[in-house]
Design a binder for these strands. Structure first.
Lengths: 189, 189
DNA sequence: CAAATATGTCAACATGGCTGACATAACTTC
DNA sequence: GAAGTTATGTCAGCCATGTTGACATATTTG
């Protein structure tokens, strides 16, 4: 694939990608790295204070945003193994940031809920990132908000988009539908 | 997707942040997580094939894009410790993806260059991410390209923006200016 | 020359991924 | 109702990649 070096303006129908485009795309790519690097940097300082790491942040965030999330659903969101999750989840439960309740329909499930304490932490961390986001979207001009969401959404692997869409659209509403929505998908991005 | 962003036209001067805005910002926040998760996922598969990880990717990418980069400058880009860098850099050098040359002006420096092999790997990985980016920007509509760059740039910590700007603007030109540009900054995002 | 700088290196440790194996309880199916 | 499947937990160990602290070497600079 990657075979470039033919920038001269021929009258091709499919201009492919000229050097300008490519540089621009690479800039975007590097910016994404830097943006994410600093985006995650803010909460890290706070988390350290609790003896937590980035992994804890993710868990407490998604559980707080989606009360009653099942372990299986959380694993689909994070795309890590249950053993990896278990480690941080255990700590969050022990320290009273998250509680588990058996599902009513399916008693095997251990639905996850943030405690008041957990919720406070989640909100605190979210606020930090929201402030940064808000400022960045403002700086990017009007409409950047919508453009950014569309862009980021399209960056998500195709097989995960519907799940992600559901998740971000109705976080408060959603509670225990996992069983009823097979979501049978296996990463073909 | 994400049909928010229409604040109920009140005539407030400073609406602070209503619930709609907040939900929208949180959606953006989560999307950034998912986007980055999948953005980095593509190259990982290829890297595995070489026995490399994400850390190697970053190094080989930035060195390839900035031939003659000094170790110190690379550390400022990656924001990791020299010991962390040393580990992956050593492997990349041993396996012939990167070479070091003493600086001409300052002989203490070990300027970094990608070998042909290293360059090939870097391009291959870049291509994967570029394809995803290209598709996403297209999906986000006209102008998303510019908006995304502005947005992402504004997400970078304020103290790092000028460095990042220089880096992405003139990657090919830049070669050994680090010494002449003090870049005295220390993370106040 | 002395001090500061650029880089390298050793050693130890933490976090957060991973795999494999196995256990338990509850649901589903025949 | 027995058998199989599913949701979850857990033990044990490995790997990648980040950290700190200490120290060595060469080179540049005041």
């Amino acid at each position: 694939m990657a075979k470039r070096g033919q920038p001269p303006a021929t009258e091709k129908v499919q201009p492919a990608r000229d050097q300008v485009d490519r540089n621009s795309l690479i800039a975007c790519m590097e910016l994404l790295f830097f943006a994410y690097r600093d985006f995650t940097g803010d909460p890290d300082a706070v988390l350290e204070h609790y003896g937590f790491g980035r992994a804890h942040h993710r868990v407490v965030h998604f559980v707080n945003r989606n009360p009653g999330l099942s372990v299986a659903d959380l694993l689909l969101i994070l795309k890590i193994t249950k053993q990896s999750l278990a480690r941080v989840l255990k700590q969050l439960i022990e320290k009273g940031f998250i509680v588990q309740k058996p599902g009513k329909e399916d008693k095997r499930q251990r639905l996850l809920f943030a405690t008041a304490k957990g919720s406070r932490l989640a909100e605190k961390l979210a606020e930090l990132q929201i402030v940064r986001l808000e400022q960045a979207l403002k700086a990017a001009g009007p409409g950047a908000d919508e453009a950014a969401r569309k862009f980021l959404f399209a960056m998500v692997g195709a097989s995960d988009r519907s799940r992600v869409e559901r998740l971000i659209d109705a976080p408060v509403t959603k509670t225990k539908t996992s069983k009823n929505q097979p979501t049978g998908q296996n990463e073909n991005n």
